[in-house]
């Protein structure tokens, strides 16, 4: 019995590992697939404009694009620095 267990444990189930990796990867790639290609540039330019007035961090702006059926939502989130 212990011998059988030894053989079993020496064979990791690589298929489930493959599935897990693929599920994460495919979900990530799908979420970025339908986004307009101008998003990174938009984010960069918005950051430049805002920095003229407020000194915000590089990652203070998040631009989120979501598609739900025929409705597309562009969500812009700016975190202003505290104590100003």
């Amino acid at each position: 019995m212990s011998l059988l267990d030894y053989f079993r444990s020496s064979k990791p189930n690589t298929a489930s590992l493959a599935k897990e990796r693929l599920q994460i990867l495919v979900a990530h790639e799908r979420s970025s697939r339908n986004k307009p290609s101008y998003l990174p540039k938009l984010q960069q330019e918005l950051l430049e404009v805002i920095r003229k007035y407020v000194n915000v961090e590089q990652d203070a702006i998040t631009v989120n694009f979501e598609q739900d059926g025929n409705q597309e939502t562009l969500e812009l989130n700016i975190v202003l620095p505290e104590g100003r």
Binding site: K11, P12, T14, A15, S16, A18, K19, L22
Partner: peptide, 10 residues
């Protein structure tokens, strides 16, 4: 069956 290959369901 040996867990070496993704299944149809996977």
């Amino acid at each position: 069956k040996l867990g070496e290959m993704l299944s149809v369901e996977d």
